[in-house]
């Protein structure tokens, strides 16, 4: 790991100021994606701006018909939040399946979605629930936020502060874990909130997380696993690597979507 300067602001405003002054800086959240890539020298930021002591970025709260999660809330704190378990158990199950217990003690929701790893779980949950990503500058709909593999709509100097999830009556996530890494080979998040149906897929797409409109249409007729029987998606645009072919990933999208709907309606 190359060396860097280290900063510990206590407010979002200070953090934004430090970002403006250090164009090559990176924000440090839980560090469990960033530090490993820095060790590999795939990232070489000149400065790290640690958000751990920034006030107002931690916690899970109920706001009207949404659950709002602070960007620096760890995976274990989201998974174990009584508010989340009560309001959106399908979402609470997402961080519970990330990494291992030690990683969940450090990894954060803000870090995960800012990184937008194509195999990460939270992007599917955000897109699958129609979340709103709140930054120090604006609010961004999940549909506009995830713009491709490891890329997001975040601009220079923009810091995620909160993520707001509308409470869906039915929501569930199904993940086919890579047995070694624990990342999603494919993961599917489904939700039904009134007339709005969402099916979001991570791990499969060559361009990161995406929605499956054909599945959503089928589920509009009846929100049941049976509505997706025999349905699949084309293998074009799917990732293909040593872990799984594009065809296999496309197949898993159908299987996991049916399982997720079954779980959401159980």
């Amino acid at each position: 790991m190359y060396n860097f300067t280290f900063h510990r602001p206590t407010t979002v405003r200070q953090a934004a100021g430090l970002l403006a002054k250090n164009p090559d800086a990176k924000l440090l959240a839980g560090g469990h994606s960033l530090i490993p890539v820095m060790k590999q020298r795939l990232a070489q930021p000149s400065a790290l701006i640690d958000l751990a002591k920034v006030e107002g970025l931690h916690g899970v709260e109920l706001k009207g018909r949404s659950v709002v999660v602070g960007a620096m809330t760890t995976h274990s704190d989201v998974a174990n939040s009584p508010i989340m378990q009560q309001a959106l158990p399908g979402l609470a199950a997402v961080p519970a399946a990330i990494g291992d217990p030690q990683v969940r003690h450090m990894g954060t929701i803000g870090g995960s979605i800012a990184n937008n790893d194509p195999n990460a779980d939270y992007p599917a949950a955000c897109l699958g629930l129609g979340a709103t990503i709140i930054t120090n500058k604006r609010k961004i709909a999940a549909d506009d936020f995830f713009t491709g593999m490891f890329s997001t709509a975040l601009e220079d100097g923009e810091i995620i502060t909160k993520v707001s999830f509308p409470i869906a009556k039915k929501a569930a996530y199904e993940k086919f874990k890579h047995p070694a890494s624990g990342f999603a080979l494919v993961g599917v998040f489904v939700s039904k909130r009134g007339p709005e149906i969402r099916v979001a897929v991570t791990g499969a797409g060559a361009n990161g997380v995406f929605r499956v409109k054909s599945f959503e249409e089928a589920l509009k007729r009846r929100f049941a696993a049976k509505s997706l029987e025999g349905m699949t998606i084309p293998a074009t645009g799917m990732n293909s690597d040593i872990h799984a072919s594009a065809e296999y990933r496309a197949h898993l999208v159908g299987v996991l979507a049916r399982r997720a709907v079954a779980k959401a309606t159980a």
């Binding site: 280290f6 530090i35 030690q102």
Partner: peptide, 27 residues
């Protein structure tokens, strides 16, 4: 492993188990 996978470096920080190979001392 030095890649936050093997757990040989687990210690407790403020009462929780963490991987000390993936934390900065200054943090």
């Amino acid at each position: 492993c030095d890649t936050s996978q093997c757990g040989a470096c687990v210690v407790h920080v403020d009462g929780k188990s963490v991987k000390s190979c993936t934390l900065l001392a200054l943090a």
